[in-house]
Design a protein around this nucleic acid. Structure first.
Length: 413
RNA sequence: GGAGGGAUGGGAGAGCGGUUAAAUCCAUCAGACUGUAAAUCUGACGCCCGAUGGGCUACGCAGGUUCGAAUCCUGCUCCCUCCA
């Protein structure tokens, strides 16, 4: 009944080469792809931070590609590992999540997850299905397969050990639990960023010790965040979320440093390798303005996660506001009344504005101090004219701009 | 059980009795420039006020010493390293 489609060279190439760091072992993976059973693809997630960003998307796209070939994804909801926290160099204690919270987070997660991955070929399972039944004896057994020395080889641990920084015992448990998940579901392939290599290998070994066919370890490059340097991460504040509004998503793409543009195309789009090369050389040789590539990237991403209309609109708006330095099409209204801070002498057509107060009232500045700073720094415009004075007479209907991105239209209440 | 180190602004990390709203770096914001919300350069970056000045908050928590404390003392709380 089930038949995996015949793989043509191009598809195969895209799956095994594009956006791939390492497949261990690659030949075995190819062999299994040709098998007559759909593969069980494993992907875990930690339900304590359900915000998906483009860093996750790199892996999700790969899963999608394989699903499209007929393989099946098993999504592990890490309700136990979430309590430990994957070693990240910090020793922040995580709070225990209650079951309801986990469920809610998991749902949020999956809602985002299915924007990339095919829900029809996805099965979600909770770690508690097996760890809920674990006894101390099972834990001890699990730990018996490895030595501390082996674990200290993991780069992160090795660095911390050498630097006399703390390594929590629970952190050592993390790879074991994640690895056991592979045993529990009998995973064929597990996916992760290159930083996950160690954990993935533990799963592979654990399966072998348990007499299972060891999973293929499939790693992908880490996507740098909007700072272009550090990995994209929520806690680093350099991420583009799947659920970012169109303008925000586009804007964040536009703020990418030039040197990561090509990598973003490689990991997040399907543009042909040939074009990828062209982009790469064009940026290096400075023959094309990189902003053009960023626009294209932004457009693709917004189209994908929102719609083509949103993409077009948001790009037009960007060009208008930031390139032409004109006013945006849709400016939110701010209603000025007698009660408004910073507004006085209101008559039919205009009023006297104390800008240090009004900017705060209108949400354009966080404090009066900041409002004054903006005025001082020549960052405030009223209908396109720079304003430095604190007190000015303004007509209703004008657009006030504070800085590059904040706009408000003053309307009479 | 023993010895020692530490808790500072969004993050990292100086300061170790006054001139410290607190160096520096990163992030952030603004301006300039630009083929870009890249890069680069410059500046700003606690809050409040009748404001070239004044006030209030802030360096784990609670007290104390002092004209004056992030800096010294005491007691808490938490964290870490090493030895056993």
């Amino acid at each position: 009944m089930f038949a995996l489609p015949k793989l043509d060279a191009e598809v195969l190439h895209r799956i095994t080469k594009r956006g791939v760091a390492e497949i261990i072992p690659e030949v075995e993976f190819l062999k299994r792809l040709e098998g007559d059973k759909p593969l069980k693809l494993k992907m875990g997630f930690d339900p304590s931070r359900p915000d998906l960003h483009l860093g996750h998307v790199v892996g999700l796209r790969k899963l999608r590609q394989l699903q499209d070939l007929g393989h099946e994804l098993v999504l592990i909801v890490g309700d136990w590992t979430a309590q430990i926290g994957d070693p990240s160099g910090q020793s922040d204690t995580r709070t225990m999540l209650d079951a309801a919270q986990v469920k809610e987070n998991a749902e949020t997660y999956m809602r985002q997850f299915f924007r990339v991955v095919d829900p029809e070929k996805t099965r979600a399972v909770y770690q508690s299905e097996w760890f809920g039944k674990f006894t101390l004896a099972s834990v001890i057994e699990l730990t018996s397969y490895f030595t501390v020395n082996q674990f200290l080889h993991r780069e992160d641990f090795a660095n911390r050990y050498a630097g006399q920084r703390p390594i929590a015992i629970t952190e050592l448990l993390y790879p074991l639990l994640q690895g056991y998940d592979s045993v529990a579901i009998e995973a064929d392939v597990e996916f992760g960023g290159t930083d996950q290599l160690f954990n993935l290998m533990v799963g592979r070994e654990l399966q072998e010790k348990k007499g299972q066919r060891p999973q293929i370890v499939f790693t992908m490059p880490i996507l740098p965040g909007t700072d272009g340097v550090r990995r994209m991460g929520k806690s680093l504040g350099n991420y583009i979320a799947i659920e970012d509004a169109p303008s925000e998503m586009f804007g964040k793409v536009m703020s990418l440093p030039d040197n990561v543009i090509a990598l973003y195309f490689e990991l997040l789009t399907d543009i042909p390798d040939k074009e990828l090369e062209e982009i790469r050389t064009a940026i290096e040789a400075r023959t094309t303005n990189p902003i053009e590539f960023k626009k294209r990237l932004g457009l693709e991403l917004v189209t994908w996660f929102h719609s083509a209309e949103d993409g077009a609109q948001v790009q037009a708006e960007f060009e208008r506001v930031f390139q032409q330095r004109e006013q945006p099409v849709n400016v939110p209204d701010f209603t000025v009344t007698k009660a408004t801070e910073g507004a006085s002498n209101i008559d039919e057509g205009s009023f006297t504005a104390d800008l240090s107060r009004l900017l705060v009232a209108a949400g354009l500045a966080a404090s009066r101090g900041e409002a004054r700073r903006l005025l001082q720094q020549k960052a405030v415009e009223i209908d396109g004219t720079r304003v430095i004075e604190e007190t000015v007479q303004v007509p209703f209907g004008v657009i006030v701009r504070a800085g590059r991105r904040r706009f408000v239209r003053l309307v009479k209440g």
